[in-house]
Design a protein around this nucleic acid. Structure first.
Lengths: 276, 276
DNA sequence: CCCTAAATGAAATTTTTATTCCATACGCTG
DNA sequence: CAGCGTATGGAATAAAAATTTCATTTAGGG
């Protein structure tokens, strides 16, 4: 036995789990360290894999992976997996109870609120690596790199994301136009065949964004969408739709997933353009 | 039995599955249609949930959900789940080699790049909880909630963060002005004693932002800074400085830490204002 | 209003997966 | 290089989940 050495209070958040993992990694014996290393780099797999699968991928015996979970302070693999699954299920049955716990804190403690948003950010990033495929990223990057002009549209909550991309495109010398709400109507005809429109909209979807995207599609432009829901109207006519599910804290969603994806995509577009 | 009616060739992609689902939805009996509707609306749950959980959430018996899977052309729930799980696992090729060399050459693989930025985001969020204290958050939230007007300034890379806060302040009815680069000079006198200026600037620091902040301080306004380095000029005259260290990927920094902090802070300000 | 075919849900069964146990291998210390 | 404690992987066991079965209900047609 070795667990008598640990304080053995199980991590209750992804942030805690990551911290614990980093903390104990060096002290673990060979095989268990292998587990730690692999897990750290494939966090997103925990939610959807069995112990055997994880063990095999990490090249250890299932029982070794089991011991790793216990060294982390969990009672077993299922226990650990449950934590990483909440990113998807946080609005399921126990959602109400969780939310009820969060709401009181919203009123008072800004520090606590920041911890909640940080935790929420971890979860958004975890699901990001699951919901967006390598192919769709590469496809989008290639299309945008080949475009005559990349048009960016994102209103309200999505505006910050559009602004973020516009900044990187500026730095990387990717020709782009950031469409703001004024003059949306007038500018639609400008978007034409060899262009790409990158449209960002989160539920409830902005009517103006959808309208502009539809007109662009009719003009023959390629439309790539970034949204947070399968029910996004863009899905019906856009050429590609990237789906980012953001976690929420008491009804508010930070933009971690979207900011990360848009930054990676912008840099990728710049990279493709510069390797031509 | 009813499956003799179907062509019963199982969908092999998510797209095919969705098409099939839409195609058969209308022809299904009550309970099975319930399954289809729920599943269509909560696609992301399939990968991480058991039949019982899905059935319960859709308010049908597990066996009914089972029949739904078969009507879809799958042999059972596991079969269907496997399809939705591949989108998580299909995405990792040779990622390990990458992190061995902690210095990623910004290559053309957008998928890998996203993994790098996601990992970088985790690290930014971890250090966030270390470098920003609860007290400084609470102090900033209180000051901003009591201000006559909150002025926001952030240029270039920091602009997305300022835009993000402006959005939340708008929603939460916190009086605020977002200062853009045009008219910076003219607007400085507007910032006066009972106001707070929230200035966001990352290294290399934007001259205009510093200048505006300094003039605001001279006018007697309270200045709160958000930056990523101890060497920020704001430190010498701002009332508070929040420090967020962002991780980088090949020289590029995503805004995870700053977006998370600014969102939490905005919500906190709104909360303090509304509990008065 | 009855009869028939389809649909439904509870419970039994089978299969898969998690977890524990233990004999063996390994590495360290004296 | 012997002796001891730890680490390890395979095999046994326990738990959980998927799948099937079947008695009962429901809806529609004659």
């Amino acid at each position: 036995m070795s667990q008598f050495a640990e304080p053995t209070t199980a991590p209750e958040t992804v942030a805690e789990a990551l911290a614990r993992m980093d903390a104990i990694a060096e002290t673990l014996p060979k095989r268990l360290k292998q587990c730690a290393t692999f897990t750290r780099h494939h966090l997103h797999l925990i939610a959807v894999s069995t112990v055997s699968e994880m063990a095999q991928a990490a090249d250890v015996a299932p029982s070794a992976f089991m011991r790793f979970c216990q060294a982390m302070g969990f009672s077993g693999y299922s226990d650990m997996q449950a934590l990483f699954r909440t990113q998807f299920t946080s609005f399921r049955p126990d959602y109400d109870t969780r939310l009820a716990q969060l709401r009181p804190s919203v009123g008072a403690d800004a520090g606590r609120l920041m911890m909640d948003f940080a935790e929420s950010g971890h979860k958004s990033l975890l699901s990001l690596t699951g919901s967006v495929t390598s192919e769709s990223m590469n496809g989008a990057a290639k299309a945008m790199a080949e475009a005559r002009i990349v048009h960016l549209i994102g209103l309200r909550r999505a505006y910050a994301v559009a602004v973020n991309m516009a900044y990187y495109f500026g730095k990387l010398e990717v020709p782009c136009v950031l469409h703001a709400s004024v003059g949306l109507q007038d500018l639609a005809p400008v978007i034409c065949k060899d262009d790409v429109l990158f449209a960002i909209t989160f539920a409830p979807f902005s009517e103006e964004t959808i309208k502009l995207a539809r007109r662009a599609a009719n003009n023959g432009a390629r439309v790539i969408g970034l949204t947070d829901s399968e029910t996004c109207p863009l899905s019906s006519f856009a050429d590609d739709v990237l789906l980012v599910r953001e976690n929420e804290v008491g009804g508010f969603r930070a933009l971690n997933g979207a900011i990360t994806l848009s930054t990676a995509l912008s840099v990728a577009v710049g990279a493709v353009k510069n390797t031509d």
